[in-house]
């Protein structure tokens, strides 16, 4: 299945793109997508997540416009966004 991944603010600069499509096996969860992103963009591994899975990393993830947890299962066509802590206001 394919999911569309969007990156915002500093994460867009780390990824070098604002948007890309990523192929994942059926049944993948958001944490699987994060592993794939770390492979594709080593800067996320170096600067954001560390080597291992880090639940406390300063990362927000949304799925189809709502905040999502690492355990959520993905579906074909989902739009997932990765972004740093917000700073509006």
């Amino acid at each position: 299945m394919k999911v569309k991944v969007r990156y915002f603010a500093r994460f867009r600069e780390l990824a070098g793109t604002g948007e890309e499509e990523i192929d994942l096996p059926e049944g993948s969860k958001i944490r699987d997508l994060v592993e794939k992103i770390k492979e594709l963009h080593p800067k996320f591994k170096e600067e954001i997540f560390g080597e291992d899975y880090d639940d406390s990393a300063d990362v927000n993830i949304s799925r189809n416009g709502r905040y999502a947890s690492f355990d959520e299962e993905l579906k074909d066509g989902d739009i997932v966004a990765l972004f740093p802590p917000t700073s509006g206001g």
Partner: peptide, 26 residues
């Protein structure tokens, strides 16, 4: 709004440019 709405600011200052992420300036 500050906590949850996906909006970010970059500060352009006399000491350089910083991404503001929550309480952090990077």
């Amino acid at each position: 709004v500050k906590k949850r709405v996906p909006i970010w600011k970059k500060e352009v200052t006399d000491e350089g440019v910083f991404w503001i992420e929550g309480e952090k300036a990077i």
